[in-house]
Each structure stands twice: as structure tokens, then as C-alpha cells.
Design a protein around this nucleic acid. Structure first.
Lengths: 215, 215, 215, 215
DNA sequence: TATGAATGAGCGTTCATTCAT
DNA sequence: CATGAATGAACGCTCATTCAT
């Protein structure tokens, strides 16, 4: 009875303990390089208990991914549902949600990206339908904006979503591997930049009066 | 002795045979899921010969990556060296080189992306410096354009390169996992779209006569 | 307290429930291949309750065997005690008891034979004394008949019991593994045949008047 | 090249070494109770070599059984082919072959009987077709004799084979578990007795002159 | 060069048993 | 009596690597 829901009061939820331990162990050593005993040790539980709650080591990772990814899908759906927000701002909110997810739970996001999302030939393969669901929601935001004339019509939502998500994932990867600094300012700046880059592009708009000269 | 230069006359270069076999085996089964014997079998050579030419299974992957990645770096350097080409066109040429690499050797590119570039916590880690070298070359193209006023100054070359490369890698991933069709037309269209999206952005430019109104 | 005697009134005897469940689970999946939880599930009781009534998984099997085997020993003793019955008929009654045991409780007999009697290097080892007791009772029937001249004196009761019991066990094995049909007629016929074969032999007796000719 | 055929001269056949070690380890500790490392240790080879020659622990047992059982089938076929031998003598020769097999390689026969033939719900299941082949050959000997009038017609070859083989297996079991003495004399006597019991039966023939009275 | 037999550390998983409630 | 979470030893199998020939 106490297995799934957090047990009230007296004791800890060992299942949650194992999941949380797995986040840190997977992030630190990598899914394949760590042993189940590493997870059990980190959680402070007996080896066998891991298999009491999970069918396999893989199921732990699956669970971590599914829990988190669903949150993101829900968030994107909620963002898309708002009709008082421009497409560009919706994309900003999506970027913001993802970046903040990393900011608050970097290990979990590292695991999800490194071990699932970017490991498309192993775990990613299994979760591709769920992963695509997110892409499609982003694509829908773009396509709706195209319908309204706010976005160009020659870049389909599908491609736009790929570029947008690809850019963000690369950003997170850069943080994950410490290639760029991770400060609150950087996080905020990155959100704006990725949306700016994807929505407005890198090219400078010609200065009003000089456009004729440059052309 | 015959390892590096193609041996004249007598026979095939077994080392090359092993590398080519590895490309297909790694692409088909994944680096971690395949055994050294799979590579030897595919190459039609004896098990032990693999260890005559390579120190370890990892060295094979390292070699495949290094060979190919260097070609790309050389290509970007050459592209960047041309001073008769606009930044946007340079980026197009880079995108073109990468897409064509995939078009001509999809298995090799799949291996490099799936097993190295996107596996940043295992092999990617080891090759990060080399990977960054490419990012930096792309970043330099952007920064030079910023200096000339062709590109916006608020998106650094570093970030721009991340977005650009991230978008392309996502594109390749979609092909690799068969999420989008792979025809010559699609390849060509994708090159244009990724450059269009990154350089000009998704947003529609306001219609000529209405710009004053909307501004 | 309620373990041994059937508890009056209130509820079912959980201990019996577990034993009966074990019969079917052991028969279906085999003793070694099933888990204690399988037995608990089949019985509809909690995992831990099995260990409340039994020291170990093995004790369940021991109990099943001992209960049943004692019934057989008692039956053979009763059969042997009758002095109005010929040796051949006593053997028939023994064969009949065993065959009927299988007819009425095939799963239980399957477990006893497959997991105990024929598993002489594991459980059989532990129960060898009890198993031999049955052999010896059969042997005694034969030896008594030898003393009276009804049976040949050159085949000891010990060997005769081995052959007799071996033949019956092989018969049951054939039923257990569905090698021969299991109908009431077949069961009755088998009883007769095994006694006929062991007591009279396979060889045809020469026809009365023709014996001189054939000799 | 040297794996399957015995290597000439210089070295030992490690595969054979493993099989022979397995015979003794399986006989001593039982198939399920022994570890693969026990076999490797007994053979004096590295753990992994066992898996170089065999797919699994089970395959070792399968191999041992198949090798030996085929020899027996071949022997029974050869015995049956002789047309100068009476059915009773053919059965004697079969009993003799089996008993001598045990006499010369008791461990191997123990393994085959205890772990395969009498373990019908695990390994026996897999080998049932091969096991039945032997039964059928014995049954054929009986049926042929019935056709010629030498054996009774009311006991089918199928049942007769069951009784005959069951009696012999019980005999071997008794030796295997040291319930009866194992001397050359005993082995020879047992061969005769089992054939005598099955062919002529246990019952004493009535004395010449008294048959009319008793009948 | 070339072969493939030989090595052995490592790990995921199972499951009988215990015990706190 | 009854529950089922918690324990942890045990083991089959994999496979990268070595090495004798």
C-alpha cells in the first residue's frame, strides 16, 4: 500500500529514495557504467529492494524519463492553450520551462538528455513516440503561427521544432559538460537568445536608411 | 608497415577492412551492443587480427571519429578562408558539407553522431576538444560577420554555433532514426531551411507597405 | 493451534490452503522453477504466511510427500495383512491403490513422483528410508509367497519389489507426461497388465496339447 | 580446427576435458547444485572456456545425454537386427548393454538417469522424443515376438517396454543410491533376474504331475 | 601477419528467508 | 495470525583482452 504513494508521516518512501539515488548515480557515472549496487548504496537500501520496486535497472531510467518528460509535455500543452500569447512568446515559455528544469534539477535533466534523448539508438528508441510528442506540440505552435501569418510558411512546424529543440538541447549539453558558464544570468540570457536566434535569425536587419546602399 | 599506406599489389588493407566493417556493425547494432567478434566476422578476418591493428574496441571508434571529424574541420577551415563568400553562404556550405557527408556515408555519420557526438558522457568526453574545435570555427564565421555588421551583435558566435550545429544534428538524428524522409530533394531542402531558419528566423517579415504601421 | 485440526466454524484452514496450492503449483511449474510467492498467490494468502506455517519451501514438499506416502504404506500394510488373498492379488491391490491415487489426485502424485521419488539425489535422498519402507513391504509380500511356493524362489522379494514398483512408476510417468491415454478403461487395463507382466511374464505359455510338438 | 575432433598428439581436447569433468561434478553434486565454476575447476580450465565450447550449462548436460543415449539406441537397433536370436535373448542383451554401461561409467549413467531420464519435467521433457525412441525399439522387439507367438498378445510392446525399462531403471537407481551391492556377480545376476521376471514372471510354475490338480 | 583458443573479472538478476508492524 | 517490505548471498553468462602458435 505504501509503495507508490508517499507514505504519510512516519517513514520514507523507499521507492522514491531509489529513484532519487539513481538520478545522481546515473548523472555521475553514466547509466551503463554504474552498477545496480551503486544505486542501492546511494539510496541506503539493500540491493534486492531495487528489484522489489523495479523490474530492472532499465525500468528505473524509464521511470525517471517518463515522469519528467510528461511534465514537460503537460507544460507545453498548457502553454499552447493560452490564446493571449504570441507564438514567439510561447516558444520563449517552452525554452524557459526546459532551461529552468535544468537549473533546478540539473542531474535529472542530464540523465534524461544524455541517457535517453541523445541516446536514440538505445533508450531513446524505446521512448521515441513520447519524445516526438513533444516535438509535435512545438511544431503545432509554429504551424498555428504560420496559419496566422506570424511565421514564415516555407519552414514547416516539423522542421522548425527540430531546429528549435535541437538548439536548446545543444545548449543544455553545453551546460552539462561545462562548456559554458552556468549562472542565473546566463540561464536567462540563453532563453532569450535561443528564441531570438530561431525567431528573428542571426542576420542583422538592415538599418532603415542604409538598406538601399547595402542592397 | 602496410597499415597506413595502402599495400601495393598483393592484397587488401586488412586494417581498412576492419574499420569499414566496424562502421556498419556499429551503425547496425550500436557500439556497446556489438562484440569485437561481430566486427571481425563482418570484416572476414580473424578475431585476433583486430587486436593486431587496434589496441582496443574503443580505438576503432576513436579512429573512425577522428578521421572523419578532421575532414569536416578541414572543410570548415577552407570554407571560412574564402573571402568572396558571405557569412550566410559560408554557413550554407558548412550545412551542405555535413548533410552531404550523411548522404554519402550514412552509417559512418550515424556512428559519429550517435556514438560520439551525442554520447558526450562517454566517447564525446574524450573528443570534446576536437568537437569544440568545429564549434569554434563555426563561431568564428559568425563572429567575423558580426564584426562586419552582417550578423547581430547580441548573439555571440559561440551561442550561434551551438544553435546552428544543434539544429543540424537534430536534423541528422531525424534522418538517422527515420523520422523524416530521405530523398535527394529533402536533403537539399533541409540545407536551405536550416540556414534560412538560423539566419533569417522563423518570423515572417512584415509586408512592405505595412511595416510602418506594425512598427 | 488451528494449524493441524480443521478450525471449527469461522474460516478455512490456511495451512491446508497452502498445501493444496503447492500441489498445483509444483505440478505445473516444478518445485525448483516456482517461487514461494507463486504458492502464496495460488493460495490467496500473504507471502509471509507461508513461512508462518512452514519452515521453508522444502518443508512444504516434504509434508506433501510424507502425508501421501504414509497413506500408501498403511494401505500396503492393510493389504498384506489379509490372509485370504493370494500374493498375485495382493500385488494387484497395491497396483490398484497407486493407480487410483493418480487417477484421483494426478497433480499430487505427479509432484510426489517427479519431485521426490524420481529425484533421488535431492529430495528422494532425504526420504529414501520412507521410500524403502514401501519397497520392503512389497518385497515382503513376494517373499511370503516364495515361502509358500507360490512365487519363484530365485527372484528375491527385494528385486521383485524393485521390478514391480519400477514398472508402475514408469506407467505413471507415461501418464504424467501424456505419453499414453488416460481413461478409466486404460487405468483398469494397466493395473491388470502390470500384474500380469510381473507375475506371469511376457512369454506365451505353450498350448497344452501342442507342447510335445513344439518341444 | 582442433575443437571438435580430438587433437592429434600434442595436446588435450579441452572440450572433452570439460565434458568429462562435468560428468563427475554433475554426478557428485547434482546438475542444479553445482556451479559452472565447479566444472571449470574440475577440468582445470578457465571459467570462460566452458562458454567457448558450450552455449550454456544446460548444453553440457544435453551433450552428455545425447552422446550416450545415441550409443544405446544404436546398440538396441543392432541387437534387434539379429534374426538368429530369440526375443527373450534380445531383451537380455539390451539389459546387459544398459547394466554394463553403468558398470563401466557409473557417473555418466547416474547423470543421465538422475538428471535427464528421471527428471522428466525439466531436461527429460526436452529429450522425450529421443527417450521414447529407445522405448519404441524395445517395444518393437516385443511386438515382433508377439507376432511370432513367442510373447503373449495381450501385453502390447508399448506397455511391455515400459515395464521392462522401468524395472531396469529402478535397478540402476538402486545401485546409484547404494541400496544394493555392486559387484560383478550382482551385475550379472541382475541382468538375468530382470529378464526372468519380465519374461517368465514371478509365479512358480506348477510341478509337473500336480498341474491338473491345482488347475 | 594471422589465427582463434584461453582467460577471468564483472554484472544483472533471482528468490528464499527474515522481520517489523 | 497475517502482511509484504526488506535483505543479501548466489550464480549464470558476457565479452574485452591476451597469447601461444
Amino acid at each position: 500500500m505504501a509503495a507508490n504513494p508517499a507514505r504519510a508521516g512516519t517513514g520514507v518512501d523507499k521507492r522514491r529514495l531509489i529513484l532519487d539515488a539513481a538520478i545522481h548515480v546515473f548523472a555521475r557515472k553514466g547509466f551503463h557504467s554504474c552498477r545496480v549496487s551503486d544505486v542501492a548504496d546511494e539510496a541506503g537500501v539493500a540491493y534486492g529492494l531495487v528489484y522489489h520496486y523495479f523490474q530492472s535497472k532499465e525500468e528505473i531510467l524509464d521511470t525517471l524519463f517518463s515522469e519528467r518528460w510528461q511534465l514537460m509535455i503537460d507544460a507545453i500543452v498548457a502553454i499552447d492553450a493560452r490564446d493571449d500569447v504570441a507564438a514567439r512568446d510561447k516558444l520563449y515559455m517552452v525554452a524557459s520551462f526546459i532551461v529552468d528544469s535544468y537549473r533546478h534539477e540539473p542531474d535529472l535533466m542530464k540523465v534524461i538528455i544524455v541517457e535517453v534523448t541523445r541516446a536514440a539508438n538505445t533508450f531513446g528508441r524505446r521512448h521515441l513516440p513520447k519524445i516526438r510528442e513533444a516535438y509535435e506540440l512545438i511544431g503545432k505552435i509554429v504551424d498555428d503561427a504560420r496559419g496566422e501569418g506570424a511565421f514564415k510558411s516555407d519552414i514547416s512546424g516539423e522542421f522548425a521544432a527540430m531546429f528549435f529543440y535541437g538548439a536548446i538541447e545543444q545548449l543544455l549539453s553545453a551546460w552539462i559538460f561545462d562548456l559554458v558558464p552556468q549562472t542565473d544570468e546566463e540561464f536567462e540570457r540563453a532563453k532569450s537568445l535561443v528564441v531570438e536566434a530561431i525567431c528573428s535569425g542571426l542576420e542583422a536587419e538592415p538599418a532603415e536608411g542604409l538598406s538601399a546602399v547595402s542592397g
